[in-house]
Design a protein around this nucleic acid. Structure first.
Length: 956
DNA sequence: CCCTGTTGG
DNA sequence: ACACGCCAACAGGGA
């Protein structure tokens, strides 16, 4: 008998830091924090990748490479190498020791060598393994530099990531991707095009495309330089001037495969993990699911029974479609159900999908079944519902169907007739008793959308609302609140993706109306089901954190208010916009000519790149001290140009040009295009769940940044007009709301007194800081005091104040010192805010709205400073947001109750705009003012300024 | 798709 | 030596 051929040897070499960074940032939107407050995302992500490769690929040999501790030869050659790369995030720093311990517990060798980076180590070992006859060598990394090492047997293994499957890059891939003949030429490509993330400069003007063509033609950087004469124009100049830099870049991109490291295959052999040690580590880190998967000795899991909701007897209307037995649990599911309620669930671990979870989703298509369903709906106290439509634009979308759910795992979908508006309306009307029922809580995800859709069918949703998107916004204000992600995170459940149903976004995208109702049913029912289950997860958490009242008394009641405001829209005088556009165009063309004349050449003024070159290279402006942006371009921002304007008129012309083109493109040209055909008005969307502080934001268009500060900008407000000649616009502004909140929070006696006596706050501050009588305060002093007052709210520094005021640093220090001497309680309050945030790791508004400040105790001074300023600003800005939200709810409620014709049409952070019948204005104004002032009484009086006019500018 | 620059509070 | 006041949306350039 001959020897059996030896089993193929399969080596995996992992690039530790690259994988760790990637894992860390994958979790950055949804950090995993364990009960000790440790961010374990990087560790979990890395370990998952490791486990996956061990289980799926079953390597015979494996090693994990780390960068060596000392600077590498690359830093010596080129000091800027990786210089602009940010310091390692703290969470990664703390993660590294754990990751090393886990690797050790798996009995995998850690490869590390002083003065060399992981890629050199991996490159060296990969080539030696190939030389030793290894059949397969995989370099595990997301980094494209490694492409230069790929051969028949050495490949790149990119681990699965954010839904993308793992990917193996072989020689074919590499040659095609870079359009080269030999893998080594990757370094020539990189040498020419550079690599921003590693600060490898490359040659200016050569990007990916150009690099490929040049290397195809010349084969290498050296040969290109030798034939530089054959190139043309600017390119020739660049290659000639930056030849050195190109060669150096190539050198930097080269992975060195002669690292003094012995290749000892037996050291790299895969062996069994140390289960005791792993158990201890996973236990400490609270990786329960991972432990169960890896160690197979975790506690036995039991299925969570689907609990019947309170107050419901039968759960399935008779005859409502499928038999329960059709939906028996999938075999083996029990072991996947997580019993881990306390730890925040992360987006890892086994996922359950529609096919795996017991559910009963019913398609309700006959009049009899609809009546039966309605009967049940009317028996509930709380129902989650969802609408399916033909698109996302509420003004044009048509209803396709509605789904309802009041028991987890059980939902009903009612298709709406298409192509027959009357029949569709009739069907919606069937459900009116439920939809408008004032006693049934309506649960939804982004329920404003459903409200608006149904409003087009004449339905005014009744009863308290519960929006799971807003619930999550209060729990995690700086995250995203996408339902699919929430389901994965909190329910360990993967909903059917909409893309699967209607295809990717694009020209040929289907809509829900193009699908058979049975297909839509599954999707729609699942959404209602998931939404209800999310509510059940979020509600107790909100209760614990003291956020339930804020949700139920502010955010949820604001939803129908915003739906009405958006639905109402704003009238825009498009003709006036058109005239103004032509006028602006005239100014702009004139400016262009003047700028070209001053520069002595034509160029694209709108390109910061070209502009910088013209101003600084060609014209030699700036006198030596020229600032650059972080990407190495010339900085040409407002502050820079206004300084230059003192010496050269071109800078002023450019600023004016910028202002006018901004006005034209962003407002004058864009707004008329967004006028809705059906009613001739512009309908913005107010997003209630994006800002970290609790403010609203406005998109499509953003009506919260319509110009007002400059004369030419203000003009645009004249085009915002009442609905007709019998109406007027009313604008009501809170005056200095944030400073009043500061006075209340700090209880500073001087500040409170000024507000109580109705003294102009900026003059009052000026009088105190500059130690002159109130009457002696001049415009300049008031201006400075105003800047100081705003600076205080934002947690200003002497540097910042000096910059803003254009004064010396010393003077700024003096002003700030004087300020704190005169307003000592403000200083105390600011310190206390920071201390409280250090303790709690969050800041909160008067109503308990939180902003998490997890970096407040960071050792990174810059990051900490940033977070400290947030600790001061977030409660103030957030409380102002709370206050105006309450006012909006009360005013809306009052306008409805009194059946008035006045409509709220805009909110701009501290301002509300109304469109009112002329005859009503005198009646509503005092009440609007009263409701705004009284929304949330503070220890200082609130002031509201109200104006009216036949356009928005006049109303101010 | 990211960057720079502008608009608002 | 470095960075340096908060919260947003949108347009255009350049790859």
């Amino acid at each position: 008998m001959t020897d059996a051929p030896a089993a193929p040897r399969k080596l995996f070499l992992l690039d530790a830091f690259a994988l760790i960074y990637r894992a860390h940032f994958a979790f950055s939107k949804n950090p995993r924090i364990n009960s000790k407050g440790m961010n374990t995302g990087a560790i979990l992500g890395f370990t998952n990748t490791l486990v996956e490769v061990l289980q799926k690929e079953k390597p015979t040999h494996i090693g994990v490479a780390f960068d060596g501790p000392k600077k590498t030869f690359r830093h010596e050659q080129f000091p800027a190498y990786k210089a602009q790369r940010q310091a390692m995030p703290e969470d990664i720093g703390t993660a590294i020791p754990y990751i090393k311990q886990i690797i050790e517990a798996f009995d995998i060798p850690i490869l590390i060598l002083d003065g060399f980076e992981a890629d050199d180590v991996i490159g060296t070992l990969a080539q030696r393994a190939e030389a030793h006859g290894f059949e397969e060598v995989y370099m595990m990394t997301p980094d494209k530099d490694y492409c230069q090492l790929v051969t028949d047997r050495i490949k790149i293994y990119r681990p699965a990531f954010m839904g993308n499957a793992a990917e193996i890059l072989d020689l074919d891939h590499v040659l095609k991707r870079f359009e080269i003949e030999r893998a080594e030429q990757v370094i020539d490509i990189l040498g020419l095009q550079g690599d921003a993330s590693d600060n490898i400069p490359g040659i200016p003007g050569i990007g990916e495309k150009t690099a490929k063509t040049l290397i195809q033609k010349y084969g290498s950087v050296e040969n290109l330089i030798a034939h530089v004469d054959e190139l043309k124009g600017k390119q020739q100049e660049n290659v000639r001037n930056f030849a050195e830099q190109g060669l150096l870049s190539k050198e930097l991109a080269t992975i060195h495969v002669n690292v003094p490291l012995p290749f000892e295959p037996e050291q790299l052999c895969c062996s069994a993990p140390d289960e005791v040690r792993l158990t201890a580590l996973f236990d400490e880190l609270e990786f329960r699911q991972l432990a169960a998967r890896v160690l197979k000795t975790g506690p036995t899991r039991t299925a969570v029974p689907i609990s019947p909701a309170k107050g419901t007897k039968s759960s399935i209307p008779t005859g409502a479609g499928h038999q329960a037995s059709l939906f028996a649990p999938a075999p083996g599911i029990t072991e996947f159900i997580d019993d881990d309620e306390d730890a925040r669930p992360g987006p890892q671990g086994p996922r359950r999908t529609l096919a795996e979870v017991p559910h009963q989703y019913h398609l309700i298509e006959t009049p009899r079944l609809r009546q039966e369903l309605l009967k049940f709906l009317l028996l509930q106290t709380e129902v989650s519902f969802d609408t399916e439509t033909t698109g996302l634009d509420t003004m044009t979308a048509r209803l396709v169907g509605m789904s309802f759910c009041w028991l987890p795992g059980e939902a009903y979908y009612v298709p709406v007739p298409q192509h027959d508006a009357a029949a569709a309306q009739a069907l919606v009307d069937e459900f009116r008793p439920f939809l408008e029922h004032a006693g049934i809580v309506k649960v939804g995800q982004n329920i404003k959308y459903d409200l608006t859709i149904l409003k087009h069918y004449g339905i005014r949703i009744g009863g308290p609302l519960f929006d799971t998107m807003l619930a999550h916004y209060l729990l995690e204000p700086d995250m995203r609140h996408n339902m699919d992600v929430l389901a994965e995170t909190y329910l360990h459940y993967t909903p059917v993706s909409i893309t699967e149903l209607i295809g990717p976004r694009g020209k040929k995208q289907k809509t829900m109306a193009d699908l058979p109702p049975a297909d839509v049913s599954n999707y729609a029912c699942e959404d209602a089901d998931v939404t209800l289950q999310l509510k059940h997860v979020f509600e107790p958490r909100l209760q614990e954190l003291g956020l339930l009242r804020l949700l139920n008394e502010v955010e949820n009641p604001l939803v129908p208010v915003l739906a009405d405001v958006e639905y109402e829209g704003v009238k825009i005088d498009s003709a006036a916009m058109g005239d103004y556009s032509a006028q602006l165009q005239g100014y702009i063309t004139e400016l262009e000519q003047q700028i070209y004349a001053a520069a002595g050449q034509e160029f694209n003024i709108g390109s910061p790149k070209q502009l910088g070159e013209v101003l600084f290279d060609k014209m030699g402006l700036g006198g030596g001290k020229i600032k650059k942006t972080k990407t190495g371009q010339y900085a040409t921002g407002e502050e820079i140009l206004s300084v230059l304007a003192l010496d050269n008129p071109i800078a002023g012309l450019i600023l004016e040009y910028r202002q006018l083109t901004k006005l034209r493109s962003t407002y004058v040209e864009a707004l008329p295009q967004l006028v809705c055909e059906a009613d001739g008005r512009v309908h913005t969307s107010f997003n209630q769940a994006v800002t970290a502080t609790g403010r609203l934001s406005s998109t499509n268009p953003n009506l919260q940044n319509i110009p007002i500060r400059t004369e030419k900008g203000r003009e645009i407000r004249k085009a915002f007009v009442p609905r007709d000649a019998d109406h007027v616009l009313i604008a009501a502004d809170y005056s200095q709301i944030e400073l009043r909140i500061m006075a209340d929070f700090s209880q500073d006696a001087t500040m409170i007194e000024a507000f109580r006596n109705g003294i102009d706050i900026h003059s009052s501050t000026a009088s105190k800081v500059f130690k002159v009588p109130l009457e002696a305060v001049d415009g300049e002093m008031r201006r400075k005091a105003k800047t100081v007052n705003f600076g205080i709210i934002y947690g200003i520094s002497a540097f910042g104040l000096a910059q803003r005021l254009g004064i010396g640093r010393k003077e700024a220090v003096d002003i700030i010192d004087a300020y704190f001497q005169e307003f000592p309680a403000v200083k105390t309050f600011m310190d206390a805010s920071i201390n409280k945030a250090r303790e709690l790791e969050y800041a909160e508004t008067l109503l308990g709205r939180r902003r998490y400040l997890r970096d407040i105790n960071s050792r990174n001074a810059t990051l900490r400073g940033f977070t400290e300023r947030n600790a001061i600003n977030a409660p103030i800005q957030g409380t102002a947001a709370d206050i105006i939200k309450i006012a909006m709810i009360r005013i809306h409620e009052w306008l409805q109750k009194e059946n008035l014709g006045t409509r709220m049409i805009l909110q701009v952070h501290d301002e509300l705009v109304f469109d009112a019948p002329r005859s009503e204005a005198d009646y509503v104004i005092p009440r609007i003012k009263e409701l705004m002032i009284g929304a949330l009484p503070l220890s200082v009086p609130m002031e509201v300024e109200v104006g009216t006019g036949s356009n928005w500018l006049q109303a101010h």
